[in-house]
Amino acid sequence: MTAPNHTRIQAVRLRHTGRWCAAAVLIFLLVFLLQGWSANPRMRWATVGDYLFASVVLEGLGTTLMLTVLAMAIGIVGGVVLAVMRMSANPILANLGWLYVWVFRGTPLLVQLLFWYFLSAVVPKIGLGIPWGSTFVEFETNVLITQLTAAVLGLGLHEAAYMAEIVRAGITSVDEGQTEAAQTLGMTRRQTLRRIVLPQALRIIIPPTGNQSISMLKTTSLVFAIAVPELLTSIQGIYSRNFQQVPLLTVACLWYLVATSVLNVGQYYLERRFKRGASRDLPPTPVQRLRAALAAKQESPS
């Protein structure tokens, strides 16, 4: 009986010629476009540098961030309430939740902003009291709903309609057996939702909520229609005087990119935190990878 002939197999690495050619072409086009854009004298980069940290621009950026935080807070809280209403066994609550989502998702955000801004034209006074009876407290609508208030209401209530569907999708993703098990243990519907369902649904809810937050940051630029001095409105006020539209819009784009990058980092670590219960081995963070690379470089012999 002859011994088997063991031959060593030599693995040949795939070359992926087409992939490298496509990458080279894309890199060339990117460098060409960036070089042409940066070397264009009409870009007036000196103007960009002069206004990048101007006080009026930074104040507008602060207003943009404030609008984003307030609108998302209203949107998240309202979205949770609306999602629970839509999933309620009470048909009145379920239909009211559906009606809200239908109205606020079906009309443009700009129209809603203008509606809140011009509300005083049809409702000059807002009061608290007995319906069809005496009024205890009364306010002028123009005093109560300012430009900033109209912006927050328009953005927040519009966002609540979208967050309601995101939260509802997260809740329905949790297995019904978990709810049944909680009810057999004597938990109420509210306790089951707060302790069992929502903590698990957050893994589904957080990624699209992060995307909505980034979208909201950019959507705040629509409040220029009601003259709220956010970032884009401040930029428009500057270039309406010096007629340097493109350099000033470049300033706005740079600050939007910085703000969205910060939100991206926050979303990354928040998603990572809520994945700990679903994944045993989480991939290392960029900081951990950098530390590992530096440690390996120090341990390697020179």
Rank of each mutant, 00 (worst) to 15 (best):
A259G: 06
G36Q: 12
M187D: 09
T64M: 02
G75Y: 03
F115H: 03
E59T: 10
R190H: 12
G129V: 05
E176K: 13
P124R: 00
S120K: 12
R189W: 11
L231T: 06
R13C: 00
V143Y: 05
A46Q: 14
A11I: 13
E299S: 15
I74G: 12
N142A: 07
A164M: 07
T146L: 06
V101I: 14
L33Q: 05
T285R: 08
Q245A: 14
T285H: 09
I9V: 15
R276N: 00
I92P: 01
V25D: 03
V77P: 12
V251T: 08
N90F: 04
S215M: 10
R203V: 11
S215H: 00
R105H: 01
L119G: 08
F28Q: 01
G129H: 06
A295T: 09
Y269Q: 09
G177S: 02
R194A: 09
R291F: 07
T64D: 03
A295V: 04
G79F: 05
Q10N: 12
Y239C: 02
V101W: 10
R19C: 00
T179W: 15
P41M: 11
G127E: 10
A292R: 12
A54P: 00
V123Y: 05
I92L: 15
P229A: 07
A46N: 14
R13E: 14
V122C: 01
L144C: 07
L93P: 00
F32K: 07
L14D: 13
V69C: 04
V123T: 14
Q200H: 09
I205K: 06
V84Y: 04
L114C: 10
T107R: 11
T146E: 08
L82T: 14
L65R: 02
I214L: 03
D50I: 02
V84C: 10
G266H: 03
A161S: 14
E180R: 13
E159H: 10
S215A: 15
I126N: 00
A94H: 10
L193S: 03
V174Y: 02
L119E: 06
V48H: 04
P286D: 04
P286H: 11
L257D: 05
T250A: 13
I92N: 02
H16K: 11
T233E: 11
L109I: 11
V57D: 08
F224K: 07
T68F: 10
P124E: 01
R15A: 11
G49M: 10
L128Y: 14
G36H: 10
Q178V: 04
L254A: 15
W98E: 11
L52M: 07
I204P: 00
T219R: 01
E159P: 00
I76N: 05
A169G: 15
W98V: 10
V25G: 12
Q267A: 09
I214K: 03
N242W: 11
V122D: 11
E159F: 01
S302M: 02
V31L: 15
